[in-house]
């Protein structure tokens, strides 16, 4: 169980404030979506939660301890992170790549043990990439690679998972599948934070949404309270149809008014 708390969080790149005064208490067992237009500060927020960017103000606490003072290895065992994009610098096989997720658990000079192999197998099965196991990851399609990298993050088996755009490059079937997977992780007690662009998927699967706009947290709460027509007009500049189909909330942008 991991709790992450952001207190008056601020991040500046050069002189430009990318994030300002963000307060959020992220509790375990929830699937939390981070949404907002391009450049709103979503990725910066999740990177700040992991202590990957220097803060210009405020702080982040993981289980009550300031993130900057936690040893990197201890933090790595508590929070798994799937970075944005598909950075892959060497042509490793899928299995070897997923195995990187076990690094935080390995003692110096020790080899991968049975427990690690089991965790790698579970991650590969959950991400539905068993058939890609022996392939070279750099030769896969964008969507396949996205699932392989998700499996890498799952292999850490940390009590918290932060995924930056886990649905990018996925087909609709796999988008739903990955959302269901994140949902199951949250139901099993994990804290799951996902940066999302698809508002319907965010509305239909998340317990809570954080809406960012110009680096500020403009709404925080259950999807039906965050995704209102007025707010979509203000933040995204879109007119949207909001409704419910088969018990799932859908948000469909219709027109953009600049």
């Amino acid at each position: 169980m991991v709790t992450i708390r952001a207190e008056r969080l601020g991040v500046a790149l050069g002189r430009r404030a990318v994030l300002a005064d963000v307060d959020a208490d992220l509790a375990p067992g929830r699937l939390i979506g981070v949404i907002g237009p391009n450049g709103a500060g979503k990725s910066t927020l999740v990177r700040a939660l992991l202590g990957l960017v220097p803060l210009s103000g405020g702080g982040v606490r993981v289980d009550g301890q300031p993130v900057a003072r936690l040893p990197r290895a201890a933090l790595a065992r508590r929070i798994a992170y799937l970075p944005q994009g598909q950075t892959l610098h060497w042509p490793l096989t899928v299995e070897r790549l997923v195995a990187l997720g076990r690094l935080p658990h390995l003692a110096p000079l020790s080899r991968i043990g049975e427990a690690d192999v089991a965790a790698i197998d579970r991650a590969i099965e959950q991400a539905d990439i068993g058939h890609l196991r022996g392939r070279v990851a750099t030769e896969l399609s964008g969507g396949e690679r996205a699932r392989v990298l998700l499996a890498r993050a799952l292999a850490v088996e940390a009590p918290a998972l932060i995924a930056d755009e886990p649905l990018a490059a996925l087909d609709p079937g796999h988008q739903l599948e990955v959302m269901a997977l994140l949902r199951r992780q949250a139901d099993a007690g994990a804290l799951v934070v996902a940066v999302l662009h698809d508002l319907s998927l965010a509305a239909g699967h998340c317990d809570r949404l954080l809406l960012l706009h110009h680096g500020r947290l403009v709404a925080d709460g259950p999807p039906d309270r965050v995704l209102t027509a007025d707010r979509l007009a203000d933040v995204y500049g879109v007119r949207a149809w909001i409704g419910e189909v088969e018990g799932r909330r859908l948000v469909v942008p219709i027109s953009h008014h600049g």
Partner: peptide, 13 residues
Amino acid sequence: ALTLGEDGATSLG
């Protein structure tokens, strides 16, 4: 770990 870039490596401890 750096195969995953700087952020990826740092998040792996």
